[in-house]
């Protein structure tokens, strides 16, 4: 493994182990200096990047779980009194949600609790029986499935979505590839129908982010992700929050809820209406 590839892998692994960006930069810089001076192979000196990163994280006493200092900005999404009925059964009953710039809201609930329905209503893809949604800024939406064109490759998707956002071809491709790199993915020149489920979801997620929308609605976007990509995904979400985006994530995985700002539990809503 060459030095640069090893250092890049180390950066990703440190991030996955919860090591903060400052410390990651410091560790990587030290390792790079050592490798340059010694001229030795990184695998011989430090071992595989994942093993070295784990050792660094362990020496720090576990992942950095301190929430960064944040000051939520203006309201970006305000859903008021959202009610939806299907065949006489109330799925959503007067649901309210306010998300400000720099906040993450997790929408949780059992299967059939109406999580995706709520998100589709927030995106304006579905009409509620009652209630309103106000969005301040541009919307980005990542559906649970679908949302890609079978016969187009990732670059062509970037150009297509980018044109809608007013981006030129080269800019859209660059932005798409940068978004993909953050998920440790290099988009191939392969049509979407040949991509695996997890890779297609990466494409879906990158498309939602294209053009830097102010509000991101993500409907279980990590389906099919492996563990590393799943961790990369959450780190990206936190980074977007720190950049002032308002993010709503539908999830049924509760282990990340301590790192979000708002939790909307739709199971409680259903129990209330039962």
């Amino acid at each position: 493994m060459k030095d640069n590839a090893w250092l890049a892998a180390l950066t990703g692994e440190l991030r996955r182990h919860g090591v903060g960006p400052d410390l990651t930069g410091h560790v990587v810089a030290e390792a790079a200096t050592h490798l340059a001076e010694s001229g030795e192979s990184p695998l011989r000196v430090f071992g595989p990047p994942e093993v070295y990163a784990r050792a660094v994280a362990d020496s720090l006493g576990g992942p950095d779980v301190r929430p960064p200092r944040r000051h939520p900005g203006p309201v970006r999404l305000a859903a008021r009194g959202i009610t939806k009925r299907y065949r006489g059964q109330t799925v959503l009953d007067r649901i309210d949600l306010t998300v400000r710039a720099g906040q993450i809201a997790a929408v949780v609930g059992a299967n059939g609790a109406g999580k995706s329905t709520f998100l589709r209503i927030c995106a304006g893809l579905l009409s509620p029986d009652a209630g309103t949604v106000q969005v301040h800024g541009a919307l980005g939406y990542c559906p649970q499935d679908g949302g890609t064109a079978e016969f187009l490759d990732p670059d062509e998707h970037f150009v297509l979505i980018g044109a809608g956002r007013g981006l030129g071809r080269a800019t859209a491709r660059r932005a798409g590839r940068a978004g993909a790199a953050a998920l440790d993915w290099t988009p191939p020149r392969t049509q979407a129908r040949h991509l695996s489920g997890g890779t297609r979801q990466k494409l879906n997620l990158v498309l939602a982010r294209l053009g830097e929308p102010d509000v991101l609605l993500l409907d279980e976007p990590y389906q099919g992700f492996d563990r590393g990509t799943y961790l990369d995904f959450w780190h990206e979400v936190w980074r977007w929050r720190d950049a002032g985006k308002a993010i709503v994530v539908v999830t049924h995985l509760l282990n990340q809820l301590d790192r979000v700002d708002i939790v909307l539990d739709l199971t409680a809503s259903q129990e209330r209406t039962a």
Binding site: A123, L139, Y141, P143, G147, I161, G164, R165, G166, L207
Partner: peptide, 15 residues
């Protein structure tokens, strides 16, 4: 028919 799945997303993207 094939475009139906993609069109809502394109609409949200500014089309």
């Amino acid at each position: 028919s094939a475009a139906r799945g993609m069109e809502p997303r394109l609409r949200l993207s500014g089309y």
